[in-house]
Design a protein around this nucleic acid. Structure first.
Lengths: 208, 208
DNA sequence: GGGCTCTCTAAGCAACCGCTCACCTTCGGG
DNA sequence: CCCGAAGGTGAGCGGTTGCTTAGAGAGCCC
């Protein structure tokens, strides 16, 4: 939090943790390419070209093309999880915490929709071990949201007949933002976040 | 409706309109392969192999691999749209029609989740012309749902501050079912449909 | 200034891709 | 009984893929 890195939606220094510089440039190029065309339709030559390097340079910093995807997926998931948890662990009633969690999680998926798209939709391109690691991170998203909803039910603020199903639906709604969000569209990440927070509060039967 | 083909979620005679028999087998094989590994990761040899034919046989019935995807996308979208419209144009109040529309649309995306996955997530693999055709079909989904919501608002049954945004969210929620639905999971397509219909009624502020 | 490490490139290899072609079989109609 | 159309195959072509290798510079410590 001491750095300027922690703004949800539009980070000032994204991928700052990736060094050296050439490795970061390659990773950013890979994110763009994967998000645009998909993992399998992206060539290593394309990634290297976007980073202004020769095809062989990629293999100095990464063992395989899959390792690039793995790195992107882990870092992306960890960031999204951190955003979600920060909101979930904040002060306030379950209603306020759920609203803030959805607002910031959606804001991230909209603002960082290229990363989010890779992270959420290219999971199957990973090998079994890497996929298992990412799936574990995903389950933490699920737990975080479910706990807020359970808190709200216990406090009598929410009316939710099916907690597990509603948790699934809430997360599904947020994640799918990465698929349809368009930078040139009519809505900003903030606006989508506000809209979705309102819709989710309605889904759990919370008073506004 | 005179045939036994029209059961949402699990059709008795799917792809019945595709002839001859070999062309249908190839198309079914392609749906499985595309849904499992994605369009770009699927080879024509894989498709032909699943259909029990040699690689060359594919090109007797389809000009290119992309034509297969195009055919799948169009047929799949048309079926989903028909399911949605049948519910939307039915009798009843906007509340009843919205619930039925969501219920059957979700049931289709869960029951036919392999087709739905191809249809919804491989759009970018199509060329510009084919993509434009599919996008047009998608806009009809959007209009269908928006009209029900507008009817409900006009009738005083719904409380929806942002009709366009809510329409988007409802469709997004339904479509994303295709991504996470698992046949071996704990829920049947019917159960997911019922849960989602309830959640959507809450989103639009309808009385139960 | 010689050697060592780190970074990067030009060239290319083996494998695999979508797709084609020459040829074979099956089968209904005259 | 021959014929043409329709449906299928084995072999393979040109191009592309992920990745490797041999070697060139640049910087740095001694």
């Amino acid at each position: 939090m001491s750095t300027a890195e922690e703004t949800a939606g539009g980070e000032t220094q994204p991928w700052g943790e990736v060094t050296p510089d050439a490795a970061r440039r390659l990773l950013v190029a890979a994110v763009e390419a994967f998000a645009e065309r998909g993992y399998h339709a992206t060539t290593t030559r394309d990634i290297a070209g976007r980073a202004g390097m020769s095809p062989a340079a990629l293999y100095i910093h990464y063992k395989t093309k899959e390792e690039l995807l793995h790195r992107i997926s882990r870092i992306g998931h960890e960031k999204a999880l951190r955003v979600l948890r920060t909101a979930a662990e904040g002060e306030g009633t379950p209603t306020e915490r759920l609203a803030e969690a959805v607002r910031s999680f959606v804001r991230w998926h909209a603002g960082q929709h290229t990363v989010a798209r890779v992270v959420q939709y290219e999971l199957d391109a990973l090998g079994p071990d890497a996929r298992a690691e990412i799936v574990a991170l995903r389950r933490q998203n699920d737990s975080t949201v479910r706990e807020i909803i359970e808190d709200g039910v216990a406090a009598g603020e929410f009316d939710v007949p099916d907690v597990k199903g509603t948790t699934l639906a809430v997360l599904s709604l947020c994640i799918d933002v990465a698929r349809w969000f368009n930078v040139n569209g009519p809505r900003t990440p903030d606006e989508v976040g506000a809209l979705y927070a309102d819709l989710v509060l309605r889904m759990v039967g919370a008073e506004k």
